[in-house]
Amino acid sequence: MSSSGLACLKKLAVRLDWRCRATDDARSPLSAFAEETVKPTLGQYLASIRQDRKMSLRQVEEASGKEVSNAYLSQLETGKIVQPSPNVLNTLSEIYAIDYIQLMELAGYLAPSAARKATQRHGRVATFAEHNLTPEEEAELMKYLKFLRMEKPP
């Protein structure tokens, strides 16, 4: 990893540690920044998961029995299609072994879970599960992960 990549990772770790130490009623310095960020889109999330599974668009198409074409998946990942059918979401959740309900929420079919407010932190990113990340923090981690993956030699 490059020195600039390590520096970014260290800054992120400091931010996360600072965020985790903040009490519920105290605003951390990261909170103002986090409010300006957005939750990952369905397309960004699907692209991140596919890359994590080291699958090509064509491999997903084959795994779906051609139910989801590589062109359609590409349009989903780039945001040209924002609300695929629940059947497509179910197929992708099975291929990627991810939560179908979360995909339905990201696609706008279901309201986000009432059990967790948008400002509450959660632990969906396994590496940082103990940090109980907010959706904004998760979005930033996904952006950083994408950045790191672009730096890796093939």
Rank of each mutant, 00 (worst) to 15 (best):
L133Y: 02
M150P: 00
Y72S: 04
A97I: 09
P86S: 02
K143W: 04
I101E: 04
S69C: 00
M1C: 06
E136N: 05
A7H: 04
V38H: 12
R27K: 14
R121A: 15
P154C: 08
T119P: 00
A63R: 12
R124C: 07
E62P: 00
R15I: 11
F33S: 08
V82T: 13
T37P: 00
T78S: 11
G79R: 05
R15F: 04
G65V: 01
V68E: 04
P84K: 07
E35D: 11
T134S: 14
H131K: 03
T91D: 05
M104W: 07
A34Y: 07
D17H: 14
T134P: 02
A139M: 08
I101V: 13
A129V: 04
E61F: 04
S85L: 01
M142F: 15
G5E: 15
C8L: 15
K66F: 15
A71E: 14
L6P: 00
Y100E: 02
L30D: 10
E130D: 12
W18H: 07
R21S: 07
I95T: 04
A129P: 00
E36R: 15
R15Y: 04
E151V: 08
K66M: 13
K152D: 11
P84L: 05
D99H: 07
N90T: 06
Q75V: 01
L76N: 02
A13S: 10
I101F: 00
M142E: 11
N87F: 06
A115Q: 14
A129D: 11
K54H: 10
V125K: 10
Y100Q: 01
N87R: 08
R53E: 12
A111K: 15
V60N: 05
A115G: 08
G43T: 04
D99T: 07
T37K: 09
F128L: 13
A34W: 14
E35V: 11
G123D: 14
E67H: 11
Q59N: 04
E105S: 01
M150E: 10
L106P: 02
S48V: 01
R15V: 09
A114F: 10
E77V: 02
L57I: 04
T134Y: 03
Q44P: 00
S69T: 10
E36P: 00
R21C: 05
K146C: 04
E35C: 05
D99K: 06
L89D: 01
A63N: 06
A71D: 11
K80S: 07
N90M: 13
E105M: 09
D24F: 10
G108Q: 03
L57E: 02
I81H: 05
L89E: 01
T91G: 01
W18I: 07
M150F: 03
C8D: 12
K11Q: 14
E138V: 12
Y109R: 06
T78I: 06
K152W: 13
